[in-house]
Simulated scan of single mutants.
Amino acid sequence: MNKVDPAAAMSALLDGFLSKLYTDFNVAFPCEVISFDEGKRTASVRPLIRTGADDPAMIQAVPGLGFRLKPKDGGEAVEYVPEYKKGDVVYVVVADREIRNGLAGAVAAPDTARQHDSNDAVIVGIFPASFS
């Protein structure tokens, strides 16, 4: 008679569930810039890390962070806006919640319940190898 160990079965079930959960849980990853819209300061990017059998889907309209830097000795602050070239390797961070309503600078509720979704990605920088 073959007995099934309930603890082993539960462990295997939980391992499969957690593996799927972690695969779908986006935090940050390197991407290749496919195109850049200079007017909107957004890029279409392709994730460079495969987490499943298929290549990852392209992510469109990903905003890049700008910077306002003030010289250490005082003086006028200078604003820097993002600019990306096709082929640049960038680092993308995914927000905990939908970010669209918060981009206007006011506290706002998200329109959806999505969490750690690649649609809420932001480019935070370019890897040094992309600089010529």
Rank of each mutant, 00 (worst) to 15 (best):
A77Y: 10
P110S: 09
A12I: 04
P30S: 14
T42H: 08
D120C: 12
A109M: 06
G16A: 05
P56D: 02
G39D: 05
V93K: 04
N101T: 11
E38Q: 14
G105D: 01
A129D: 15
G39A: 13
V92T: 13
D5M: 03
V27S: 11
A57T: 12
F131L: 06
I34K: 14
K85F: 03
Q60M: 06
D73T: 10
E83H: 13
D15N: 01
R68D: 12
N2H: 09
V124Y: 07
Y22C: 01
K85S: 12
F127H: 11
D5W: 01
T42Y: 08
G16M: 03
L21R: 11
P47S: 05
P63E: 07
A77V: 09
M10V: 02
M10R: 07
F67N: 05
R97L: 07
A95D: 09
E38M: 08
G74M: 02
V27E: 12
A108F: 05
D37F: 04
A109R: 12
A43L: 04
F29C: 11
G74P: 04
V124M: 09
R97F: 04
S19D: 13
A12C: 00
D37L: 03
P30E: 02
Y22M: 08
H116P: 00
D111N: 09
E79G: 06
L48D: 12
V89S: 00
A121K: 02
V94M: 08
Y84I: 00
Y91V: 08
P71I: 03
D54Q: 08
I126H: 02
V94L: 09
S130C: 03
A7M: 09
V107W: 11
A121R: 00
A43W: 12
M10T: 15
V89W: 00
R50F: 01
G39N: 13
L13P: 00
S44V: 03
R50Q: 15
L69T: 06
